[in-house]
Structures are given as C-alpha cells and as structure tokens.
Design a protein around this nucleic acid. Structure first.
Lengths: 345, 345
DNA sequence: GTGAAAGCGCTAACAA
DNA sequence: TTGTTAGCGCTTTCAC
C-alpha cells in the first residue's frame, strides 16, 4: 500500500560528506584510532548522530573486525547455559562486541561442526564453544582460524583457552555433604561415555571420577555404585529403577545432572519412595529446575555467570594478542542444599 | 610454540584459478544461478571440494545476501523458545540459510533494540522477533529495513508477518477443562500490563481476556477472579498467597504461564494445601518444567515446533518476494492434562 | 593531523 | 554459455 522501498542505509560516505571530512577521518573516529584531532572527532560524532549512522559490520569485517563473538551452544535447552551467556554479555556490555548464539543440534557432532563453520564463515572475531562434544582435533582446527575459548570441557590445549568448573571438586562436595548427613550407601548415575577423548575431558566423566575418589577418601570404596545411563530425564528414570531393584537399596543418589535428578524423582514418586525421608537425591548444575518450588533439589552450583565473565576476559585478551600462550581457568563450584537431602532413615 | 600463523583462507579467486575458470563462474555455481553448463559446474564443484573452499558470508552480504536469519530472543531462559528455534532450524536445514540467535536482555526494551540493531548491522537477510516487548513503531522500523516475522505477539501489521498461537482459545481450553471437572471458583493469575499497545497484543493480556470470556460463556461471570502480578515464579508465589487469603478460596487456579504455576505450587506446598486434592492448578506453555516428574503440571501446549516451521516458511517466502502482502498466521493450542488438576473437593 | 587510493571477497551488469 | 569489469562499505597504507 505504502512505498515499500527500503530506504538506503546511511554509509560512511554520507557521514564524511555531511561532516565535510574524508571517509578515512570518519573511520578513525569510529575505531578511536590514532590521528584525529578533538575538533574533527566532534564534527564527525555530530554528523553520525544527526544522520543516525551505524557502521555495516559485514563491510568492516572484510578488512578488519566484525565486532561479533560467536557462542556455540550444543543444546539451547540446557538450563545451565543461560547463566554463561549472561555472564558473557554482561562483561561485554561496554565493549563494541556483540554476542550471537549458534544453536548446535543437541548431541550431534555434525550439527556442531556445521554451526561453528557457519560462524567462522560469518567472520566472528572470536568463538566460545560451550561444552562441545566434537573431537579435540576439530576444536583445534577451529582455534587455528579464530581465537577460541572452550567452556565446560576439561583438557587443555595450546591452541585455545579453557574455562571450566572443577567438576571433581563438585562431586566431592555432594559426597561430603551426604556422608556428613550419615549416608554410606551413596549411588551415582553417570552419563555413559566410551570415546577416550571425551572420557578424559567431558564434565560427566570427571564427575564420576570425583565421586569415586571422594567415596574412597571417606573409606567407602566398597560402597561405590555407579549406574551408567544418559544425562536426560529418561536416563535418570531408568537409572533410578535399576537402583530400586538392588537387593540392598542405596540411601542416597547423586545424579550427575539436574535433569537426571528429575527422572530419579519421578521414578521414586511412582514407586512410593519418599524423598528425602527414604532416599536422598542430589543433582548437579543448580539449574532453574532445582530452584522450582515443587522440586527444591540439592545441587552443585557452577557459577555460570562467573564462568561467562572469565570467558569474556580471556576473549578480549586474545583478540588483543593472538600469540599469547593459552590459559586454563578452573573455577570452584559450591553446594546449594535444599529439601531433597536429609539424614538416612 | 608452533607456527601461530592463521593460514590464509581459500577465496573464490583460488577456486577459479584451480578450476581454470572465471570467478563469475564460481559465483554462479555457488548460487545455483543461471548460466553455467553442467561441465563447468562439475569442474567448479571439484575445485571447491579439493580446496575446502567456503564462501565468506560477510563479503557475500556486501553485494547480495548473507544467508543468515537473525532470531531475537528476549529471554533465553524462557523454556518455550527452544521449541520455536528447533522448528525454525529444522525447516531451514536443507536451505543455505543459517540461524543465529541474539540474546535480548530479559524484559528490557533497550537491550532488545540493541540486539535487533546489531543484527541488522550484521546484514541479516531476515529477522524473527520472538515475543518482542518493543513498541509497535520499533517493530515496524525494523521491518522496513529487513523482512521480519513477529512470533508470539498478536496484532497484525502491513509491514511484517505475524505467527502466533490463539491464546484466547488456549485460555478457554483451561477453563473448559476445569469446569468440566466441576470447578466453579476458578481464579487467574495474570501479568500486569498497562501499556495500551501491549495490552492489545501481548499473549498475557489475551490469555486474561480469554479467561474472562470463557468464564462468562459458562455462566460464571460472577466468579471471575484475577490477580495481577508478573509472569515469574515470584509472581506466582505472591499471587497464590493472595488467593489463599481470600475469604472463600478458589478451587482451581489458572496460571498464565508455567513459571507462574511453579510459584503457585511452592506457595501451596508451604501453606499445606495439597494439589490437586484441595486446589487444582494449570499452567500455560507446556514447558519442560511442566513435564518434570515432580511437577507434572496440566498446561496448554503452543506447538512451538510448528510455530517455528511456519515462521521459516513465511521468511523464505518474503525473502523471495519482499512486496507480497503481509500475513497473519494463528495456530491452535492444545491442552495437556497431567496430575495437578482434578475434581474439586 | 589529514585524505587519496587501493583492496578485502564477493555479486551483478554487461560484453563477448 | 562465458568472462570482464565495476562496485558493495569499510579499513589501511602511505603520501602530503
């Protein structure tokens, strides 16, 4: 009905003309680069405001930076990720950088590769890979073409920085807490893992290892009882049913992730087992789920916001100096006790 | 330690040289454009594979398209959004388009504007705005510079397409269900809204309206009881406490969103009110929360995946023809009954 | 301190 | 059908 003509965007040339200076001058002002007098800066700034000019990031990227940080999220549903993203965006608020999220297909190596490639094609200045499942070689491949920080996956590389939580310590927090309450038969539900890379680097594997070590440290090596399923609600349900079928039931279950704990709680409710009266349950990640009124799950908090902030720091650092040696940051988790853990019956 | 030289990326020129053709030819093959013989196509394809060439999206964007769809998510924590994104990416799987997500600060008009602007600066070929809170004028401003689909917000415009759920019908589903169970005193917890734009267009307002109409349709106009808080767990908690303080308590509560229902359940547990024995509770959105074992909440399902797929269709359509008249698609919700609703005591 | 000019990787007119 | 050429909007030498 009206004129459907998309109005031509204001370019750097328009600004230059309006301010009666060269495009070079405008560019310098835009980037706060050296070689522009205060007077010129003022003139240009005014023209920018008057015309409502916004630089075309794609065009900038062709020569310099796009001022865009790509974050690969393998599973947007994972309620632990938003905290990291928040920490990242908050830390980047007063920088010219913009965060864009790439949805990797859940637990799909191919989809993960697709989205990371796509982000590189789009000229991201840096990449954040959150709990990637891709093989190390692919992570390093990415890191060679763009500054990269890997989050939530252990194992360091000289090609990328790593920010993770101390999952071993997190598992110990849970075991210590349960033992402190008087539990001895503490079972663990883990995510089955066979790939050797991932066995050494993925949080789930480290948590299981931490559980075993902590049990031994308490002289409970003989009580170690691990059920291997998956980090899903279904996995928790299946695992819990297996535990209920034990000749001697555990008095506490440490689920490797909050979603797993949800499945456990469901199975227990179904079987008429009261939590925490009959059996205690603890999760990991302190997700939104855990805090929900009807759930109120004891869980390990990974300080996702802090992880995100730390990631931002490393990112800017490496954009500034691509050749600095790689860094590995490990943060300490804390335990949030709620209503699903209590002394054994 | 090793050579930290990022290897120069393969460009269209490299491919052209390697295949002994012009860059134009390569470009045509890339875009499946008219004017390339099968023989040439084969040659070019082979060169592309051999060199591992990937087009630079930023450079493409400078002349043509970036093949990128920007999705603005005002709140990454909202568990309803992932379904939409999944539907979108699934529908776009076999197209050259890539979806990137922009995290808008939760309920923050300014942050929302920032992220949409940033996406336009980065040359997105189209934008999807999911449940935006920005004023209509801003939405239309966006739509004039890039094809836009607004999702989950009613009110049509000639500038952008709209895909939403029939929230009025959804509210009626809940009321019908509860009345069918024998309830009469059915209360509703809504998200307080004063802005006239949003009052007419935001789902929360429509749901409240739908509740009222459905109550009247059942001859229960006198029983209409609305508490105005916010669509948060806290809001649900506060609302539920108010309802408990009523001289005559409702026998059922229709929470406008699942998170709200979580707060309601928490307050009820705290007050020793059993659900569904004493009071029934229903939510909206059928989020992951609702399906959690310990929650098992009756909720309205919006078919997010379907919404996403429909959005993709409209998007591609409008990219192909920017001048086609705008469309409004309204999908029908369904009710998922679980264990929080039962006949009144 | 300032600006002219070249070029980033690609697409789109236009000639051949 | 093919290739030549001129930009897209920006940054970056490098003269002045």
């Amino acid at each position: 009905m009206e004129v459907p003509t998309p109005p031509r965007r204001v370019t750097i040339v328009d600004v230059a003309r309006h301010a009666q200076v060269s495009t070079t001058a405008v560019s310098k002002v835009l980037r706060n680069a050296y070689g522009a007098s205060p007077a010129m800066r003022a003139k240009v700034q005014q023209a920018i405001t008057e015309l409502g000019y916004r630089p075309n990031a794609a065009a900038r990227g062709l020569r310099g930076q796009t001022y865009t940080i790509g974050v690969m999220l393998p599973d947007i549903r994972n309620p632990f990720f938003p905290d990291i993203v928040d920490g990242l965006t908050d830390a980047l608020r007063d920088t010219p950088y913009q965060v864009l999220l790439g949805p990797g297909g859940c637990n799909d190596e191919h989809a993960e590769a697709c989205v990371t490639e796509a982000m590189i094609d789009r000229g991201m200045d840096a990449m954040v890979l959150v709990a990637p499942i891709s093989p190390r070689s692919h992570l390093e491949h990415i890191a060679t073409s763009v500054p990269t920080v890997v989050v939530g996956r252990h194992g360091h590389s000289s090609w990328y920085d790593v920010v993770s939580d101390d999952d071993q310590a997190g598992a110990a927090l849970v075991v210590d807490h349960l033992v402190g309450l008087g539990h001895r038969r503490i079972a663990h539900i883990e995510h089955a893992e066979t790939d050797p890379d991932r066995l050494a680097e993925m949080p789930n594997a480290i948590r299981a290892e931490g559980y075993k070590q902590a049990m031994r440290a308490h002289g409970l090596g003989a009580e170690i009882d691990i059920v291997s399923t998956t980090y899903t609600q279904e996995g928790g349900y299946v695992g819990a049913r297996q535990l209920l079928a034990r000749p001697e039931r555990p008095t506490a279950v440490f689920a490797g992730a909050d979603v797993v704990a949800m499945g456990v709680l469901e199975a227990f409710t179904e079987a008429g087992v009261s939590v925490p009266e009959d059996i205690s349950v603890a999760g990991y990640d302190n997700t939104t789920f855990a805090a929900l009124g009807p759930v109120s799950l004891t869980s390990v908090d990974q300080a996702g916001h802090h992880i995100g902030a730390e990631t931002a720091r490393l990112l800017l650092d490496r954009i500034a100096d691509r050749n600095r040696p790689s860094v590995q940051v490990k943060l300490s988790p804390t335990l949030v006790t709620r209503h699903t853990t209590a002394p054994p019956p």
